[in-house]
Simulated assay, not measured.
Amino acid sequence: MSRIVRIHEYGNASVLKIENLEVPAPASDEVQIAVKAIGINRAEVMFRNHAYLQEAEFPSRLGYEAAGVVSAIGSGVKDINKGDAVSIVPPLDIARWGTYGEVVNVPARLVVKHAKNLSFEKAAAVWMQYVTAWGALVDYGKLTKGDFLIVTAASSSVALAAIQIARMVGAIVIASTRTSNKRQALIDAGAHHVVAVDEEDIVQRVMEITGGVGARLAFDPVVGPSFDKLAASLARGGTLIQYGALSPEPTPFPPFTVLGKSLTLRGYLYSEVVSDDAALERAKDFINGGLESGALAPLIAKIFRLDQIQEAHLFLESNTQVGKVIVTV
């Protein structure tokens, strides 16, 4: 029997329940992992709140990321052995391969022997944030040296990964956050410029920073009322990549800005990489290379225990963190 987190209904953090369950042997194409650390993601909060792309079938497991030690392998699995220290690229089904628990089964193709310089806690913080940012900015956006990039909600784990990846390729990062409280933390995390959007006009600041040209790319998980100004901050021919929809408010579409600047608006999900074997391998190579060189280094905001899973979700929802929330097992 293993301790597993499940939800029996949608709701606030109190619906997260730790239960003792028997975990079956891995399928032929799966690997079973004794979990040491779990990465907590905004997607799991949205899933729990019934605000996510996937519907739950109760009782439901949940969780996208984990790191641990391989305890069993399916009959068709090669190149992975019992005892290997591994981490998990987020699967495509948040419930079927939920990672909140002591023992999990996951698809073998998504299991990575992570860089040896990583602790289990940091390894559990790698794949959602870096795969999401890499797929949007490098694989699709072709971000390169000298490009200006706007990263919104900049203290989130994905945004921090985007900042590191942008610096790795030589781009110039303009991080946006609501207030100046996190300004120094974002500069320390690698942002070249920080705009506090509740205190400054982002369009004016971006134009000052870029010499009146605007940014080539914007990477945004929020949309809502800020969408208009974000679009206006882009250069002619620029691209706004939307990878989330955190704002509960309506998103007004700015047709004249989009037409006048010939902008591209691109919806993006990390699953575009995970569902494509060739893209997944490119992502693994890029990210592992960055981890080994030190150019990519997961920033952990706070660590909780498994029996504090509700507190971990509440902390993430507080929006006070800078970096990844981790749960140890």
Rank of each mutant, 00 (worst) to 15 (best):
Y100R: 09
D276C: 07
G290C: 08
A297Y: 07
V5L: 06
V222L: 09
S119V: 04
A161R: 05
G237C: 01
R282T: 13
Q164N: 06
G211N: 09
V86R: 04
G39I: 10
W127I: 07
E44F: 11
I174K: 10
G290K: 04
G68D: 05
A133C: 06
T264D: 07
I202C: 07
L21M: 14
F219Q: 08
P254K: 09
L53D: 00
T264V: 13
S75P: 13
S87A: 09
P221G: 13
S156A: 13
T320G: 14
A13L: 01
F304P: 05
I38A: 05
I33G: 12
L296N: 07
V151E: 00
L118G: 08
N105V: 02
Q310W: 01
P221S: 14
H192R: 10
P255N: 13
E57A: 12
I33E: 02
A245G: 15
D139W: 02
Y10S: 08
E65F: 08
T132P: 06
E249S: 13
Q164C: 02
I94A: 01
A295W: 07
G267M: 03
E199L: 03
Q129K: 13
G237T: 01
V45G: 07
A295C: 04
Q242P: 01
E317N: 10
R205M: 07
A301Q: 04
